[in-house]
Amino acid sequence: MLDATLTLAVAVVALAATSAVGVWYARRGERSLDALLTARGSASEGTTAASIVGSVMGAWILLSPAEAGAAYGGLTAVLGYALGSAVPLLLFVPVARRVRTVMPDGHSLTEYVRARFGTAFYLFVLAVSVFYMFVFLAAEMTGVTAALALVAGVPPWATAAVIGGFVLAYTAYGGLVASLVTDTVQTAVALPLLVAAAVGALWQVGGTGAVHATVARETPQLLTLTNPAAVAFGFYVVFAVLGANVLHQGVWQRVWAAESTTSVRRAFGVSAVAVVPLILLAGLFGVVAAARGLVDGNAGISFFLVVNDVFPPWLALGVVVLAVLLVASTADTVLNAIASVVTVDLAEFSDAGGATLTRVARAVTGLVALAAVVVGAQGYDVLTLFFLADLLGAATFAPFVLGLYLPSLGERGALAASLGGLAVGLAFFPGVAGLVRELGLPVSASFFWVFVGSTAVSVVATLLAAAVSEGEYDFRALGGVGARLTEVSER
């Protein structure tokens, strides 16, 4: 096991270095409200792509894909996870262009939904989006504190406080501009580290041939590509990931932060390609862990079980840096995203000036960071909350996105489609399905139907609502959304 003090010191050095880059970069430019929340038109294609990858690929890629590889169906489940994670990013290739075309002065997804649909659906989407983002952040903190406790015995509060403290410092100071540049640095370091960890682990266990032989002998079911449960997992994970990512304000911020529509479309395409091998490499650790007999009811930490098993301590420190950078690049995005949602909405509902809004943005960033540190250090089982957040996303994203394209879709139709999808998803949700069954409905708990069912109902209901509606939304109305805040920001 690694030394706890040394591990924490390495984490501090990695975080201090990236924080210094973030603060230095933010100091160079103007520190306006726009730089804090929007950074409009400032990010090159590479920065946008690196930032998207850094934002969506958190420490969870060291936990969930390996767990899927070890416990939910081996290689098929990992492949499904990898491809499923790419789908939402591919969806943004056309959606980003549409958003930038109809709402060039926009700042947030809630700004869009309020202007496009009205207050009721806005409040619903606001709640779903903020709930998802906070659960994501809390899960990241919980995951990394558990991982560092496992490999080095670092107390969870220490890990949470160090990561939360550094990320808060540069995000509160430099806002989105700092988040974009630190995401880029963190991704540029994390990608080679993950490759090195995978190649190093393979080297230590005798290469791909030896790994294949061990898995084929000990756990051959993990190498089949036709395991029905694994295929089902690979299919429903697409819908679980899709809705949640579409309602991630951090992703929306990057749509406007990119320098051009062409570069943002390419950046989403490149990001979609990038996440596939990353998740595959991380997920293979689960297959290796299961074949080597390391997993004993703790498949969630398979990646780190392999690291502990095959790496000498000094190499395991590289994985600590990897985990910390993955969390930091995700956490800064979520902190800034929640602060931006709150501040943008405050600007709409009040006549607060730029200085007040800047203070609010920084205060919200601090509050969310504090809450994430406190929750993350507790080691709660946040998985159920995560599934619930994913369900809310799956039920909501169809009317939300199709509202950009279907002029006849109204607020009542959007709400009905979301609530219909949510009802179906909840009926199959573990813990709820039993109650529904007692009412006489033939359902049993199934994540497949939670995500596929809720998405399907929501999509069909959205299309039906648009077909029967007689209203016609004029998309030109979105053209002026955000203009007041843009004016205040750039003053």
């Binding site: 090159s44 294609e45 590479g46 920065t47 792509a49 690196a50 990858v53 290689l75 880029t184 991704t187 540029a188 990608l191 080679p192 993950l194 490759v195 995978a198 190649v199 393979l202 791909t208 041939g209 790994v211 294949h212 032989a213 084929a216 051959p220 190498l223 089949t224 590509l225 570069s263 390419r266 490149v270 390609v273 990038a274 596939v276 091998p277 990353l278 595959l280 490499l281 293979l284």
Partner: peptide, 30 residues
Amino acid sequence: MISALGFAALVWGSVALTLFVLGYVLATLR
């Protein structure tokens, strides 16, 4: 069941793709 060759291709293909994406991102930075 995936063959040893297929498994190796999956692993090394993932490594190569990750490095390619990294190179592309760095080349399009400004």
